[in-house]
């Protein structure tokens, strides 16, 4: 069984990004290639900010996602339209909008919703966390 995760809950207004992480750890524990990819949409794209700084004595959620992506080779996609609207911008978009900075954290990538459609059609199950 392979899963794709769709996460729509804001990292600040919901526990979607936290719970999804725990789900992934449990799934990987059972079967190492059970996660096909993770797609962040709506306010969940805020997880991909490299400039947000949680207080030192709290969990760094973005970092936790980066670690799991690195260790298990799981692609982390952010909806490009949702991300750009919220200031999560990679180098390409930064050039396109003639900005001086980019804010996308490492291991995250901006993709269109078409990528989500591809994931849907190539995995058994898609689970939404909101």
């Amino acid at each position: 069984m392979q899963y794709t995760l769709l996460i729509t809950g804001s990292p600040y207004h919901s526990k979607a990004c936290h719970t999804a992480l725990r789900f992934i750890r449990a799934a990987l524990n059972k079967s190492p290639d059970s996660i096909k990819g993770v797609f962040f949409y709506e306010d969940a794209v805020l997880i991909g900010s490299q400039v947000a700084q949680p207080p030192r004595d709290e969990i760094n959620l973005t970092q936790a996602w980066q670690e799991i992506a690195e260790q298990h080779n799981i692609p982390l996609y952010l909806c490009i339209a949702a991300a750009v609207r919220r200031g999560i911008i990679n180098e390409g978009e930064s050039r396109r909008y003639e900005l001086e900075q980019h804010t996308l954290a490492e291991y995250f990538q901006l993709e269109g919703l078409g990528t989500l459609v591809d994931l849907m059609n190539t995995t058994n199950k898609i689970i939404q966390f909101r």
């Binding site: 729509t8 949409y41 709506e42 339209a81 949702a82 269109g112 919703l113 078409g114 989500l116 459609v117 849907m120 059609n121």
Partner: peptide, 15 residues
Amino acid sequence: KEGLDLALVLATFEQ
């Protein structure tokens, strides 16, 4: 808005 956007994209991809 974002839910409807997703619906439109799915439809555009003939889903």
